Simulated assay, not measured.
Amino acid sequence: MAVERARVRKLAVAAVLAAATALTGASCEDPPNRSDRGAPSRTPDRTPDRTPSKTPGKSPGKTPSKTPEASPETSPGKVTTPPPKTPYPGQAQVKNLRPDNFRDGIAHVGCTGIDAGFTVLGYGGRTKWEVLVLDFEPRADQREFGSVNIPRNVVVEPRSGVLEAGRSQPVKIRGTFGGGFGGRPHFWVLLSSPERDSPTREVVHFQCLGALGP
């Protein structure tokens, strides 16, 4: 009986030791991951954000594009004026005509001793002007005249010149006139701006005082 009790006691001790060993091994293992219950574990995404910056000049390696500014010549809504083709774009005008005794648009002078004149005014830019005296009334589109129709005894001083815009030049008319084309007691003074892109002119009609007929 004593032997049997000793054997039972050894078996009980061995069982206790085995149970203790099992508990010690279980405590040394990692506890189960509670997040694995139905949902996969999430690994933090460490990939850097490569979305390009939307702020100009912030994106590495890229130079922001610059929108070209519209020049005054091409800006919408602006009308540009082309430069003149001539250095004399201005126009000459007759001012202060004397003698100031017009009748029916004709200036009357004493043709045995002419004493007349006017002022040339330049406007619209630099003006090149010239004066020509004729013994007949020129057509509006006539640009060339023969020397035979230029009264030699009617003297104009000066006959031409250049004026800046707003400047003026007195012109004197002297001499004598014995009759023009067909013996008519009339002569015409032309002030022209021949160097403009569109040449212009003014015509002043003179008649001898005391003359009879047309």
Rank of each mutant, 00 (worst) to 15 (best):
A165V: 04
G117N: 07
E164Q: 08
S192P: 04
E195R: 10
A70T: 15
R201T: 05
V156G: 06
R98A: 14
L121N: 06
A22S: 08
T43R: 00
F118C: 07
R9H: 05
V162C: 01
G117S: 13
A70E: 15
D36I: 01
L121A: 14
R152N: 07
P87A: 12
P60Y: 06
M1N: 08
K66I: 15
F118L: 14
T80H: 12
N149I: 00
P60W: 08
R167G: 00
G105M: 08
Y123H: 07
N153P: 00
R37E: 15
G210L: 10
R167V: 04
G38W: 05
D100I: 07
L23R: 02
L209F: 11
C28E: 09
V155D: 10
R37V: 09
P89A: 14
G180E: 08
N33F: 11
L163M: 03
R37F: 15
T86I: 11
V155A: 10
P87D: 10
P32W: 11
P84D: 09
I173D: 02
S59N: 11
S35L: 09
V109K: 00
F145R: 00
R46Q: 07
P82A: 15
N33A: 02
S65R: 05
E144S: 12
R152A: 13
D49R: 01
G113P: 01
G122L: 03
K85S: 11
F145I: 02
A6L: 03
P83E: 15
G210E: 06
P214F: 10
R196C: 08
A165G: 13
A20I: 06
R7M: 07
G105W: 15
D100P: 03
V133S: 05
D115S: 15
